[in-house]
Design a binder for these strands. Structure first.
Length: 199
DNA sequence: CATGGGATTGACT
DNA sequence: GTCAATCCCATGC
């Protein structure tokens, strides 16, 4: 890779808060193909899910509890939380301030820092580095301290699709691993991408 | 304050 | 296919 210290990323510009200030399902679809960056590691987003306060699978459904408060604090910030006592899950908060909504990033195609990802994950196969929401946070070293940090300024940032890349083919699915509102087709995957968590 | 469950993963039958 | 790990948070007494 390139990357002298201080050099700009070889990706498009970081997405502004206005990108996230839209219907959360639309944002989930548009995030496919964008690039998630943290330090020397980066990956192309290939799987997302939308969550909104009006449906019971969303943490914001019960209102702004201490954990879910982040979801109401305005578009373009990170929502990071622990699941199953083991894994950290990364979301991008969407829609207007006061509305609880976020996109869960579920899988990445590694672009930069693959050896660092392998070291952090303790695994070798490329498709086992970021092919799940808990895996990608471990590979990119995303932690609870990144909660509520702005996604256009970092330390964790999301960038527009790589300039020369054509628009990805996107398939719509139902969300995974939830018990409520399972019928909503709010999961988006890039068709045929080997890094998706579940085909 | 005690308890139960979860937007998961990895190891094992 | 099954199942344990492990801890924060929401809920209820």
């Amino acid at each position: 890779m390139t990357a002298a210290a201080g050099a700009s990323h070889p990706y498009g510009p970081a997405l502004a808060p206005s990108f996230y200030d839209r219907d959360v399902v639309t944002v989930a679809r548009h995030l496919i193909g964008c690039v998630l960056v943290h330090g020397e590691t980066a990956g192309r987003i290939v799987e997302t899910e939308a969550y909104h306060q009006d449906e019971p699978a969303c943490h914001a459904y019960v209102g702004p509890t201490p954990r879910a408060a982040t979801l109401f604090k305005g578009p373009g910030i990170a929502y990071v939380y622990f699941s199953y006592g083991i894994h950290t899950l990364f979301n991008a908060v969407c829609e207007s301030t006061g509305v609880g909504a976020a996109v869960l990033v579920r899988a990445l195609e590694p672009l930069c820092g693959e050896e660092l990802m392998r070291a952090r994950r303790g695994r070798d196969p490329l498709t086992d580095l970021c092919s799940g929401p808990g895996k990608l946070t471990q590979a990119l070293a995303i932690e609870l301290s990144h909660n509520e940090r702005p996604l256009d300024r970092g330390p964790v940032t999301i960038h527009a699709r790589m300039p020369l890349e054509h628009a990805p083919a996107i398939a719509e699915r139902t969300r995974i691993g939830i018990t409520k509102a399972t019928e909503l087709p709010w999961r988006f995957v890039e068709v045929g991408n080997a890094h998706v968590s579940r085909p």
